[in-house]
């Protein structure tokens, strides 16, 4: 068989399918639960959370707002109300704690669409990158959204933002939302591998900025155990973030994955059969905590 070996096979063999997918399952649970919480209102009349990801109100107490949308609003010349402002601050603090692009991998529903596309890419044996975008493209698009807001005095990105369109589609009526989601799916499947989330989406760029400063991080603490199976690179939506930590390429030989582009999706923790990766805080730069114990055990 010349089909690509699915990453994580070794890990599944040694610890079982469930444990080898625990973070993935938790993420899906998180993404679906958040959508379900919003859906409970319009679908069943149970109003726990109202609104959508742009701005929401939970149990008529907690107001949350998307800081990126408010940033655009600011560029469009509107000074937001205090409700939106405090809501955005809470969200900012939250993502500064748990990781900026946790938004991408634990909240954003489009992530499920593009992950599915990428999984199918592997199943169908589609090799190569397809149409190549660099992350620079994403930065340009991000800048463009702000410039457009400034020039047109409109929150332009929200007209086409697939995340908003997905949520509003489900909560307030689909319209042509389905075509947009299908377009992204097909784009990631046939046109460009991990094209949307990892290279183009300006929302991910914004949360990536937060992520470069955030507290919770993945560390390659047990990197000395690495057997170069490449499974982590294969599953990682942003494989370039792993290398500096895993291969000691940073100046201070820091095992922390420092890039804001890391989504804290923890798939690397799932698939690594050598237990190289784990969650820690940005202050823990310890290297190889379990190394000595393991050396003693192993002959």
């Amino acid at each position: 068989m010349n089909q690509l070996k699915m990453p994580g096979t070794d890990r599944i063999a040694s610890v079982g399918w469930l444990k080898a997918h625990q973070w993935l399952l938790l993420r899906r649970l998180s993404q679906i639960s958040i959508l379900a919480l919003f859906m409970l209102g319009p679908a069943a009349g149970v109003w726990i959370v109202k609104g959508n990801l742009a701005s929401s109100r939970t149990l008529d107490v907690l107001s949350l707002s998307d800081p990126y949308v408010l940033l655009q609003s600011l560029f469009a010349g509107h000074v937001m109300g205090t409700t939106a402002f405090t809501g955005a601050i809470i969200v900012l603090i939250f993502y500064l704690l748990v990781g900026g692009r946790v938004y991408c991998s634990w909240v954003c529903p489009i992530n499920m669409v593009t992950d599915l596309a990428n999984w199918m890419r592997k199943k169908l044996g589609i090799k190569g990158q397809g149409l190549r975008f660099t992350i620079q493209t994403g930065y340009w698009i991000f800048a463009m959204t702000l410039v457009l807001a400034l020039v047109t005095q409109t929150i332009v990105w929200e007209l086409v933002n697939p995340v908003s369109i997905f949520y509003r589609g489900f909560l307030y009526g689909m319209g042509f939302a389905g075509t947009m989601i299908l377009a992204i799916f097909l784009f990631d499947l046939f046109v460009s591998r991990r094209g949307w989330c990892s290279h183009l989406c300006p929302v991910g760029i914004f949360y990536g900025f937060l992520g470069s400063k955030s507290v919770l991080r993945v560390t390659a603490m047990n990197r000395d155990n690495c057997n170069d199976c490449m499974d982590c690179f294969s599953v990682c939506p942003e494989p370039q973030v792993i290398k500096p930590a895993l291969k000691k390429l940073t100046d201070d030989k820091n095992p922390l994955i420092q890039s804001g582009r890391c989504t804290n999706c923890a798939r690397c923790i799932d698939v690594c059969n050598q237990n190289v990766f784990s969650f820690t805080t940005r202050f823990n730069k310890q290297d190889g905590m379990h190394l000595h114990q393991q050396k003693e055990i192993m002959p």
Binding site: S56, H78, T154, R168
Partner: peptide
């Protein structure tokens, strides 16, 4: 309308309430 398109973040909370 000109100011509205820069101020409304399309959250739909008004619709809900």
């Amino acid at each position: 309308e000109d100011d509205f398109s820069g101020a409304c973040i399309r959250c739909g909370l008004c619709v809900r309430d």
